[in-house]
Design a binder for these strands. Structure first.
Lengths: 227, 227
DNA sequence: GAAAGGTATTATGAATTCAAAATACAACCA
DNA sequence: TGGTTGTATTTTGAATTCATAATACCTTTC
């Protein structure tokens, strides 16, 4: 029997705005009008503004005093920095996972891995991405470190738009799958150090795609926040 | 000529509440009364509540729907997890710092290091802590990764109460200074890998003190959030 | 005397209102 | 015509107000 818990309005609103940003309905750098969003969601300004404060502290939007909110524009450097961080976090997750993971959990991840390989052979990119993400989540989860998971999830949220961009060169894809091949082996051998190293490099590689995809603007293009 | 920028009230309030938590004026697990704080700061509930939302997303307090806010109680596991994370982040910072740091910056850190040694010899714990922190900040800063700095700073904030607790065994202190001796050498040699490893272990050690100090309660004591 | 139920009080959630800053626009002047 | 100043409008910042959920307390009943 699950508790009835009325989620606060501001949380609901924050989720919705997050979606809008993730989907690109709110473009980077775009000014966010409070009135407009209030009407869109059918709520008053109070919960909306509370939601905006939360999103700002998550790094998704920036609040300019007396001038409203705007979606953060990702610079190349910001994304690079974030990837470095996520690499370090995935590395730690891998090490911890090898210490804590059960045989059962390994089997689950192995199953996901094999499923991902099938999607790769079928050239089914959407499903590949989905399963791929679940593998990484599985490792994070096996680390049994909630603070780590939460932190990673926040960073991931920030760069999601870029990360799962549609472009994917065939060459990179092959390389990513190869990484995963090594990963599952290291995991099954419970070789934390090696798994950590692979995960670190794995994420770093992804940056290449991102920058190639041209989704990110160069850091020279704009640095709104530095005014 | 510096711009006149009127900081928003909610930011001011958030800072003040952060201080209260850090100083222990608001005890862990203590219920935060909105009215009380409003009167204390002389502001209305609106900016206060916005500040509370921010602090909640920073992980300092937790908001129970219709039941107000309370200061997060640190469990031993939470602190352990956070230390693991901070270790990974400091490690990354060390590696990046070795890539980016200028000779000038190294000299500054060396000077701080020597100053810290003097405080150690004088058994001046407060000043030791202060300079020690500035060294770590220097390395973080030399990493030239703002996302990393921001993330680290947030995690640090959460465990500050514990971390800079008054207790400090003589044995641990000696060991910490020894770590720093190795650190400065690795930094001057620009040996990123080694510096990273040292920083990681360095932080891990600190956990011993924290748990010894008995400031943290065991995870069995309470897990309020898991209701 | 203890437990259950109901009422009063208090605290929080959210909308509305008021104030102040920023923006848009028009009039005026060089 | 171009630029500047002043006014009107819009938008944000913060206080107040209203509604609702939670808590405390009192009464009633067994």
């Amino acid at each position: 029997m699950s508790k009835i818990h009325h989620r606060s309005l501001y949380l609901e609103v924050a989720d919705r705005v997050r979606e809008l940003i993730e989907q690109g309905d709110l473009a980077p750098g775009e000014r966010i009008s409070e009135k407009q969003l209030c009407e869109r969601f059918g709520v008053s300004r109070t919960p909306l503004r509370e939601a905006l404060k939360v999103l700002a502290s998550e790094g998704l939007i920036e609040l300019l005093p007396n001038r409203g909110a705007r979606v953060v524009r990702l610079t190349l450097k910001m994304v690079k920095d974030t990837y470095d961080l996520m690499g370090a976090l995935e590395g730690l997750a891998g090490e911890l996972a090898c210490q804590n993971i059960s045989d059962e959990e390994i089997k689950v991840i192995r199953a996901l891995h094999d499923e991902m390989l099938r999607h790769y052979r079928d050239r089914n990119l959407p499903d590949y991405f989905q399963v791929n993400q679940r593998i990484h989540e599985g490792i994070l989860s096996a680390s049994a470190n909630e603070v780590l998971q939460e932190t990673y999830s926040n960073l991931n949220q920030r760069v999601k738009r870029v990360r799962y961009s549609k472009k994917m060169t065939d060459d990179f894809w092959r390389k990513a799958v190869q990484d995963h091949e090594h990963m599952i082996l290291a995991l099954e051998a419970r070789d934390g150090r090696r798994l950590g190293q692979i995960l670190r490099d794995h994420l770093c590689n992804k940056l290449e795609v991102a920058s190639l995809a041209g989704v990110i603007e160069d850091e020279t293009t704009l640095d709104v926040a530095t005014s």
